[in-house]
């Protein structure tokens, strides 16, 4: 059993220090580097917080929907190949899968997109 605070908490706390204490003290030409740092910390924190649950759900859904076995990489590749061949053009269930798989990536890499586009929590996860 790991002790608390966990890694996600620490990254969040580090980000607060960088944003509130360090950023105002930096010369303007270093702000971009710190903003990149904060962005990267945010991605790492969200991945830690999310854990592997969503990844596993996605993996299982892909196997069932595609009726394909193999590693997560292999079924993702299988999905990509099916899309390329036109197999998702008219399939609503697979289209929903495509949206939710992509939205899951966005929720870790760039969640501001949902806010900017006015997408609800439900549409994010679908």
């Amino acid at each position: 059993m790991r002790i608390k605070p966990d890694g996600a908490d620490l990254l969040d706390t580090v980000a607060t220090v960088l944003r509130d204490d360090i950023l105002p003290a930096l010369p303007a030409e270093k702000h971009y580097a710190l903003r990149m740092t904060l962005n990267a910390l945010g991605i790492a924190r969200r991945q830690l917080q999310a854990g592997d649950a969503a990844e596993e759900v996605e993996y299982e859904s892909l196997q069932v929907l595609l009726d394909q076995e193999g590693s997560h990489e292999e079924v993702t590749r299988g999905f990509a190949d099916l899309i390329r061949a036109g197999g998702v053009d008219d399939d609503a269930a697979l289209q929903r899968m495509l949206w939710s798989l992509t939205a899951q990536r966005v929720s870790e890499s760039a969640p501001r997109y949902f806010l900017q586009e006015g997408l609800s929590q439900e549409e994010q996860a679908e």
């Binding site: 962005n39 495509l98 949206w99 992509t102 939205a103 990536r105 890499s109 997109y113 997408l119 439900e122």
Partner: peptide
């Protein structure tokens, strides 16, 4: 900077889906 550029891809992908009629 290059590492973060890779993390722009999902947002672009989702917007492509939204522009091509896949938004719920």
């Amino acid at each position: 900077e290059l590492a973060l550029t890779a993390h722009i891809v999902p947002e672009l992908e989702l917007h492509i889906l939204a522009m091509t009629g896949l938004k719920p």
